[in-house]
Amino acid sequence: MIIKTYVVKNVNEAYPMIFADLGKEAFILNTKPIKTGGFLGLFRKKQVEVVAAADHFAEKPPRLELALEVGKPVNDTQNEVLKELSEVKGLISAIVKNEQKTIPTVVEKWVQRLRDQEVDEEVIQYVVKKVKLKQIQNLSAKEIEQCFLAIIEQLFEEGKAKDTESGSFLITLVGPTGVGKTTTIAKLAAARVFQQRQKVGLLTTDTYRIAAVEQLKTYAGILNIPLEVVSNPNDLQKSMEALKDCHMIFMDSAGRNYLEEEYIEEINQYLRYDAPQENYLVLSMTTRWRDMRKIVEQMKSVPIDKLILTKWDETSCYGVALNMVYHYPYPLTYVSLGQGVPQDIMQTDPLFLAKKILGVDENEAGSGTPIKTII
């Protein structure tokens, strides 16, 4: 390993010199402010001493006297740093090798399947550890499959809503634009009207998209139920009063870019109505896990009670559903399976979801688990 010390105006100034001398793999060991030059302690310049190191020479090895600086040998402190770095690197290497060993060969097929489904690595490691407890060396391939299936089913069982029969008067759906909130509200409202013979009201705050209002008006006309359009939070009280005779009101919120903080407070203003209410976060299965996580983290100030996942039929990658129930406390209540109203929505079925993620079915032909419909 080579260590070189630079005295520069700032750290950024040192980077080109470090890369030229030590190569692109070089790293900084230490920086500290110093004063140089001057006369009799006066007029000294403020500079930065940067100590850098590399495991190996650059493509064109620097001269030894340049690497160590003439007359400036490696001191005891630098030797100690090198020793600690070596120990840390050895520890990291051991951890990586050990982590690789934690995945037995007999389960590699299923681990790869979970990765292909974009299941989070932390979730995969959790599942693998649970499988290992079952002494897999004594199990057949089919039994190992059943172990994975049972563990993932249990995760969904723990993460599903225990009761979809809400006693709340106001149900609000929130979520980014394009996830299908309006269609989902129509499905939930239709189920209440046709199956439970309840009087339902619709309310929308999505005045940003004319098409959204018209779409909900069409559904309200078909279902023969009232609809109120609210243009700002101050009008909410008046609209709620107009729907006071309903058993339940479903409110459609504006779909906005919730990665931008100003929209979070905007949606919160509509969620402060003084009445028994539940707020459902609606997310699309077509959203990448990294983006979905950003949305959820950004919306932490929004009082979310339950989760709905839409567009299940528009993807072949289902891992984000498992990631959500593992990482977040929002009970998964419904899964939307298509555009049909009201039939293409189902209550959370842990076995169905687990089979879709693993790509297995009850029969050996693996024809795929049939879509379940109706809530």
Rank of each mutant, 00 (worst) to 15 (best):
K187D: 01
L133N: 14
N323K: 10
I308H: 05
I249N: 04
D305F: 01
V74C: 02
L227S: 03
G90H: 03
I210V: 15
K355W: 05
Y273V: 08
A220N: 04
L155K: 13
N12D: 12
L139P: 00
F156I: 05
K134G: 00
G221N: 13
R115I: 08
W110I: 01
N30A: 14
N79S: 04
F19K: 15
V229P: 03
D21L: 00
R256P: 08
Q137R: 06
T183V: 13
K60C: 00
N257Y: 08
I357S: 10
Y263P: 07
Q347C: 12
K372G: 11
I144T: 03
K132D: 01
K142G: 09
T36N: 02
P73C: 06
T184Y: 06
Q343L: 11
L170E: 03
L40V: 03
K134H: 07
L223E: 05
K129A: 14
S367Y: 15
K187M: 00
Y318L: 11
V48G: 03
A242G: 00
G340L: 11
I103G: 06
Q137S: 11
K238N: 04
T5Q: 14
D120K: 10
N224D: 15
D120W: 03
Q154Y: 06
E118M: 13
S367Q: 15
L149Q: 08
K60R: 09
L64N: 05
Y15K: 12
K32W: 02
R272W: 00
A20I: 01
D252V: 05
E214P: 07
F169K: 15
S239F: 02
A54W: 04
A254P: 09
L351N: 13
P303Q: 08
I249M: 08
